[in-house]
Design a protein around this nucleic acid. Sequence first.
DNA 1: GCCCTTGTTGATCGTTCGCTCAATAGAAGG
DNA 2: CCTTCTATTGAGCGAACGATCAACAAGGGC
Lengths: 227, 227
Amino acid sequence: MVSSRRETTTGGPTGRRLTAENRERQIVEGAIAYFAEVGLDGHTRELARRLGIAQPLLFRYFPTKAALIERIYQEVYLRRWDAGWEAVVRDGALPCLERFRRFEIDYQRRIDDYAWLRIFVSAGLKGFDLPSRYLGMVRERIFAPLLEGMRAESNLPSPREQPLAPDEFELLFGIHGALVYVGLRSRVYGIDGTPDRDAVRAAMLDAALPGLLATHRRVVIAGGPKG
Amino acid sequence: MVSSRRETTTGGPTGRRLTAENRERQIVEGAIAYFAEVGLDGHTRELARRLGIAQPLLFRYFPTKAALIERIYQEVYLRRWDAGWEAVVRDGALPCLERFRRFEIDYQRRIDDYAWLRIFVSAGLKGFDLPSRYLGMVRERIFAPLLEGMRAESNLPSPREQPLAPDEFELLFGIHGALVYVGLRSRVYGIDGTPDRDAVRAAMLDAALPGLLATHRRVVIAGGPKG
DNA sequence: GCCCTTGTTGATCGTTCGCTCAATAGAAGG
DNA sequence: CCTTCTATTGAGCGAACGATCAACAAGGGC
């Protein structure tokens, strides 16, 4: 990899005197892998050891450990948000169920990732607002447009006439949660289950989507005027 | 702060010189609440402060912090396992879907608990085998008998003739995960969502159960001989 | 009243944490 | 070859960690 001088104990030569840009990227990627593995209470000394660098070097690039973690949030969650998701759930050329299916298949493939899932729940446990803010985005930017489309497809009142009810969101979050749980069992609970989680989630969608519109209709009508 | 007879800063008088039994129980319950809140990396000094006792007293009742955490596992998970669950899923007087519904409603009510859910995922993040072992119990003691009953109800080969397939378990874990996710969003991600999570889960079951047997039949037949 | 048992504490040990700073060393320009 | 710039490091700070131990104090039996 690099070079006449310096190699880490793990065998990977670090190469010293990187450009600031490269070193920063190396630190961020190493921090993502490390904190995903041991949790956000991981230690800066151990992170530095894994990177093959001295611990004070971390503080040259990030003023505090908290700042490094904040950077991880941006890198793993905000940067990986796909604007295409917001487009597909509004794609009038597709039936709503197909929009939902396409979103979930793509979304789950993106977040069924060791670092994504583990740092997400780790942040939730530490009381950071990242998970609630992120799921708020899913709710408002993905599920709300989907529910609006489902209302229209079922000839039900628009959200303007009858605001979206919590129970309608729960319908989508229920299916969503079943799909997320597949990844959680593997990445967080450490269960080496079915090899092809993509296929498992596709099957779950096949089982859950056909009845969704009818259930949604019932929920909306039950929550309608004088309901 | 500490007058003649000692009181904690939180207002609750600690009362010193408890019997060993009472002190131990107080420590265990306090530790459950504390580690659930801050994670298993919480500090013994802070735990002692919240209990209104000196930190070394913890080590009189538990030799190490790890031993205290091990005790928490027994208290929160193994002791709260309900033998009735294993009975109801084998109750031949009920249709399988009703057995499943009753199990899930009771089970979810038990585990939708701040300490239960947070310590569970915290243990998973720390790489402890508690979550995988616990879900292994659910799989073998709950879902396996349920699937066997569903096979019988649908006049399909028994697990003896055709072993239970991973895809069949995923069918149940899918619905299960959707229900667990309701609690996770509230207890771990900090989303104060629908007030009545019991009702939300009941609605999810109403939506998911009716199609379950038919889907299960398809899965078993697809995975059958020369499948 | 006194003693004995034992629940409880203050002081403290060795280690490790996040973080700082002066000194070092590798690359680029003359 | 020498200077300049800066990425990088070794040494170390104050604080907090898990854990230890001798000393203290609250009851119960005599």
